[in-house]
Design a protein around this nucleic acid. Sequence first.
DNA 1: GGTCAACCTGGCAGTCAGTGCCAACACGGC
DNA 2: GCCGTGTTGGCACTGACTGCCAGGTTGACC
Lengths: 201, 201
Amino acid sequence: MTEIALRERRRRQTEREIGDAALDLFEAGGVDGTTVDDIARAAGISPRTFFRYFPSKERAALVPHVELDERVEAMLAGLSADRPLLDQLEEVWREVLLALDDGRSEAGRLLLRVRRLMRAEPALRLAAAAVDEERLDALVGHLVRLVGADDDLEPRLVVETAGVAVRVSLDRWAGAREAGRAVDLLETYAQACRVVRSPGR
Amino acid sequence: MTEIALRERRRRQTEREIGDAALDLFEAGGVDGTTVDDIARAAGISPRTFFRYFPSKERAALVPHVELDERVEAMLAGLSADRPLLDQLEEVWREVLLALDDGRSEAGRLLLRVRRLMRAEPALRLAAAAVDEERLDALVGHLVRLVGADDDLEPRLVVETAGVAVRVSLDRWAGAREAGRAVDLLETYAQACRVVRSPGR
DNA sequence: GGTCAACCTGGCAGTCAGTGCCAACACGGC
DNA sequence: GCCGTGTTGGCACTGACTGCCAGGTTGACC
């Protein structure tokens, strides 16, 4: 029992250490300019061990934020079949963006670094897309079960649509921050949701 | 002049030959089970030459359909700033899907094979996502210039939203076809557009 | 018809990502 | 102190991808 929890905590810590090292190196020398050996050396582990923690070097920059993830999980578990799904999803993502506290919270600071990097690194965008795909697929599955649909077309479209608003908002936020401009993430997201809801002019 | 056109035609032909070989092999043994050497051998070229045609093995399965691409290009060039962009984009994509003729046209047959493969092959989905990203970015740039916006938030969201409808429709089409069910691509797309336009309930 | 220049191609050698296998090791439970 | 489980690192290997160079092709031009 406690043993498992202990190991889990240890694992998380190592994960974070490797992730931090990767992020530093990626920022300093680009993803292509950084080898797995570099990351492993910086994190004090062997390359072989690196691949026991991450399936690719890009993924090391995308360590999930456990605490935030758990909150999302809880919110998604609480979705109701009785209200429009898009409304509820937008509320959930809004909560998440709020938790980033414009880059001041732990999760926010981290995500800001990652999204900034992503803007310059196609390889990172790809890796992030793969992660997103998995998560959104799972979410679609959940929604299908929730509303008892025999067809996942609508849930899938709603999930993807909501996802687009989030992704575009985050990207613009990171881009503006990088350029020194201040952009309110939540306001951008609200605007994005508006556009997505009535995209014709 | 003519020389360039000739070389271009030659190049296209080789591209198609390599692409066909890759598609065959991917269908037979999966993407992971196929090496670049395999593809090169089947296409009668050296591995070194393969990489002069494609930047990765996955991309060999995603050879653009020149004829269709040119039509799309022409349609996108004819977009007007005076009508809602989403309406126009949906019309363009509708034309494209129409040209697939439910998998009976050359382009349709090819795309059906590719989309089928993509459903089983994450690596292919990733590669396709990278291609899409580039194209959609270019389209967003075009729209920004067209409407003279100082801000690409709205065009980007519109383009991505329209893209989601297309992608989801194609995926469902390929999936249904694979399962032996008949699904009308255009009808699915129309339904997807409807959902995307009023995603709440 | 021969020469020139601009490609196109293949081979070679090298880097690096990622994996299977095995031996050493850490550690909590007994 | 011993045991089982899980973690780690080294080794060797496959395979993607690249830079470089040495022929070969081909159309253009005299």
